[in-house]
Design a protein around this nucleic acid. Structure first.
Lengths: 303, 303
DNA sequence: GCTGGTATGTGGTCGGACCACAGTATCAGA
DNA sequence: TCTGATACTGTGGTCCGACCACATACCAGC
């Protein structure tokens, strides 16, 4: 739409071409892009430019490329925002574009909202019990997403750019939310009760738990964003591990707080759920970071 | 950190090299990357691979490239997450990775939190009045960000990948928040009072207003995310314009609601600010989208 | 019918070659 | 000496051709 003078950059033309085809709907997830050579010939650019555009698309989590031949080869449209968001935020933090404090503040906002929403939904479900399917989450105005089911499975997440450590949970699938939902999160809590757990392993499970909560909310955007937020400060979290005096006591407290959050959600007590997850995150970072508390003026989330 | 077997992909090695240098701190914003040929020679890869990695970095808002010679040429480290976030979310929506409903739901979460936080801060400032500077926003654990001031200015935002229409407001600068703050948002409201405004122009100003609120919160992550959310559904917003019966009445209502939000913030009434911004966004999308309301079960934000 | 090698096409990478561009050094002229 | 235009140098931007590794599809031979 924007005139913007056709950028002399050839690779951008390729990018815009793909985006337009995507928007026009004749390029659905699971389908294959034309070959690099064909695309170059079609658009009148060199293959290098096509490849640069494809690298961007790959980094954005839009395509998955594979060598060889057959139906799985080539550039296939996928939609795995988790890895892309992680890479983006991780790099921005590395380049001092995202202050760590803002990352934490955003975590507070999103996770409080997620916990509150889950609790409210639990209350609503307990109330009218039967027609659970009618409150379908992510399927607001897009029910066609079932067409994704073919090539955009949960695997191959790792092939995205940043894929360092988004956590074990998948991010792409589970179209209507509730892919495991709260039970999945609680399974992670059970795993965290294992006494012989390295701090780093505990931290990984902790990350997976928080991500599972977001997934349970059924909001793909929040899920991907939280994956990005988490992985962007993972290095700091690992460093902060050394700052903890009594790991045993700390991990016990974290486990207790996790259970408290889930309990509040199950009890449909939204304000308590919000407050508990907020204090949980806020408290952990206050303990593990040297600087003053990340929460700025007042408690931002729960009124 | 993760072993992950050195990806056979050469361009990824370049990406990781740059990321490591970034994390090690010997590559600060404003500084220049080595030339493509030198980088290729250093890492033992071809220039094509270096270029593919640079395209990814450019798309992620990490570098800004310029031809020619001199201090402004080459790949310069910047940190402009706004454009990158916009491109990422826009493409994800185009590829059906982000349902539009989830975009709207996330807007509700973030903007409610922003409005509430601004209101609370207004109350805090009114209370202790003098030591305003001590509640510095984004400068939680990173005060070194003033080093950004040289090359990572507000301009050159446009050169990022998606740069279609993030809105007029800048996204990269304003390190300690409050770059205009609420007054900037109110200036936009004044501009929206102009009677001879095309609906599309009004919409652009509306987007800028919401972004200005986020900027006023001083949270770079939220600001960039909101820029992305907004631009990702801009096409839908424009399409929805045709769905509005009486544009005059609608625009008057929107203006009134905007003022109401700012008034609540100025009055330090956080719950009201949250509710008003929530209803504002929710109401607009209910009017402009055909499907059922995007808000799922209950009012998610304000308890 | 099954098995194995082969043909084909894919992305991945490299190296080279140009171009346009923007500074900078150089040198001729006043 | 100063000034101006010129040539030079190095940058990214693009294209091209070539090769490789790989995975499938095909087909001859068993």
């Amino acid at each position: 739409m924007p005139i913007e003078a056709e950028s002399p950059r050839a690779w951008r033309a390729v990018l815009e071409h793909v985006e337009r085809r995507l928007l026009d709907g004749d390029l659905l997830p699971g389908e294959r892009l034309p070959g690099e050579r064909a695309l170059a010939a079609d658009l009148g650019v060199g293959r290098s430019s096509v490849r640069e555009a494809l690298r961007v698309l790959e980094a954005m989590g839009l395509v998955r490329t594979a060598s060889g031949s057959g139906p799985n080869a080539g550039a296939i449209i996928v939609a795995t925002p988790g890895g892309a968001m992680s890479a983006l935020m991780r790099l921005q933090v590395a380049a001092h574009g995202f202050p760590v404090a803002d990352i934490v503040r955003t975590r507070l906002i999103l996770e409080s909202a997620v916990a509150g929403e889950l609790a409210e939904r639990a209350g609503a479900e307990a109330g009218l019990e039967t027609l659970r399917s009618s409150t379908g989450e992510g399927a607001g105005l897009e029910t066609l997403r079932s067409s994704t089911g073919e090539g955009a499975g949960l695997e191959t997440l790792r092939s995205s750019t940043g894929g360092s450590s988004t956590g074990g949970s998948s991010t792409g699938g589970s179209s209507t939310g509730e892919a495991g939902g709260l039970p999945a999160a609680e399974r992670l809590l059970d795993a965290m009760d294992s006494p012989d757990l390295e701090p780093a392993e505990f931290l990984a499970l902790d990350a997976a738990f928080h991500l599972a909560l977001a997934e349970a909310s059924g909001n793909q955007v929040v899920t991907a964003t939280m994956a990005g937020l988490r992985s962007s400060i993972e290095g700091y979290a690992l460093d902060g591990l050394a700052r903890i005096d009594d790991w045993h006591a700390t991990s016990a407290r974290l486990r207790r707080e996790h259970r408290g959050v889930v309990d509040a959600i199950r009890a449909a007590d939204a304000p308590t759920a919000r407050r508990r997850i907020h204090d949980h995150i806020s408290g952990y970072y206050a303990e593990t970071f040297p600087e003053p508390a990340p929460t700025p003026a007042a408690a931002p989330a729960h009124a």
